[in-house]
Design a protein around this nucleic acid. Structure first.
Lengths: 230, 230
DNA sequence: TTGAGAATTTACTAAAAAGTAAATACGTCG
DNA sequence: CGACGTATTTACTTTTTAGTAAATTCTCAA
């Protein structure tokens, strides 16, 4: 953790954006690790190799900084999620030609696997972000709720809509609720990483291991397909 | 929140156990709502209608109090979980007679429904406890891990073992991992309540509503059965 | 009834951390 | 080159909160 490098510090050119970036990075880590109240501005300042007063200069107060971290995190989440969605489309053969027999039909197993894979990647790494979000929600439920609705809403709806289409086309069973299924997908993937202390204590292999991740991926895909396929 | 009742306070007879209980109750609420660092001993003291120094007298320091809350919470969780397990057994017709054709066979749909129902009940109410657990795990990973292993381990293993039996008997598909399935069950149920700020913002109906709870229950049961039945 | 031991309160200390104001160093643009 | 503005630091105040020590009140048992 000791990145104290007086040389680098002295040499570093003055750049407000770069400095802000560094502060945000350090803040993200500290908030994720300790929560809002547990986090120390002093620690963040040290990690960012910056004077504490500078944090106040740029972000006003602790709450302002936290809000900014949340904004950035949600943006990152969305980015990953849209990647995910575009990849979903990408894994489709080509444009659907309505009249052709097989056109427009999706390779469901591949699609599901790609979706789950990306979920795992995201949550295994950004596991702490949801905790930050919860904290922010407690402080300012209105703003957070609005932000989430604006930022993750669309991507969620897009996935649901995609499933809904397939359902209408009869590619998957009709008696399934797309919303619930997508939520379940996320839940099955995210939960073990969110509740690591709980799960780890009753699980034979480490939750973070790639072994577990692979097993888990496979299982979730099987669950989804079992429910979706006729 | 204002339960300040000087009369009651003055009248109340001196009872260390009752007072401790009151403190623990208040502490549970405060810690659940604000986390370890966010929680204030003063607030807890006021809620418990007790002098702050009394908290120190009984629990030593803030950490001691928190540890005690965790212990009590885990106990409650286990209690619910064993209820759950005994109910699982209870929903079985009777003792299995090995030679008889249908004996020992489980009414899987009913069993699954009962299991999920109890999970929903637990997590919808004790949603905040997992947050407390996470916090404690950060402070003392070793102890928490041991506690969890001792207390929720057995119940988890019992459910898994039950499924495993059924699998060996060929009552459910052979290509399923009981551990993963049980974890998924818990995940699908608990996640929406844990991550309420995230889910609520993209969900049409309130997560806490009985409407959502019912829908959810049904969906999870369907998921499990789809995967388990041949 | 009384005295001993507990439950409970009062009054305080100490430490930590957030936030502020003003001074200083640095780069850049005329 | 030089001064103007912004980035950054220094030094400080204020507030909050956990924790402690000792006094006080209550209860119960001898």
């Amino acid at each position: 953790m000791r990145t104290a490098d007086p040389e680098a510090r002295r040499k570093r050119e003055r750049s407000s954006v770069e400095t802000k970036r560094r502060i945000l990075e350090a803040a993200q880590a500290e908030f994720a690790a300790k929560g809002f109240d547990g986090a120390r501005l002093g620690t963040i300042a040290r990690a960012a190799e910056v004077q504490q007063a500078l944090i106040h200069h740029y972000f006003g107060d602790k709450e302002g900084l936290h809000a900014e971290v949340v904004r950035a995190g949600l943006a990152a989440m969305t980015e990953g999620a849209w990647d995910l969605l575009s990849k979903m489309d990408g894994s489709e053969p080509a444009k659907p030609a309505k009249k052709s027999k097989n056109a427009g039909k999706t390779d469901l197993p591949a699609l599901a696997a790609a979706f789950v894979d990306l979920l795992v990647r995201f949550f295994a790494e950004n596991g702490a972000f949801l905790a930050i979000l919860r904290h922010e929600a407690r402080r300012d439920a209105r703003t957070v709720s609005k932000l989430v609705a604006e930022v993750v809403g669309p991507v969620f709806e897009a996935v649901v809509a995609r499933l809904e289409e397939m359902r209408k086309r009869g590619e998957v069973r009709k008696d399934v609720s797309p919303r619930h299924l997508v939520l379940s997908c996320v839940a099955m993937v995210a939960f073990p990483f969110q509740e690591e202390p709980l799960v780890a204590a009753v699980w034979p292999t480490p939750v973070r291991s790639s072994e577990f991740r692979e097993e888990r991926k496979e299982h979730v895909v099987e669950m989804v397909l079992a429910r979706l396929l006729p």
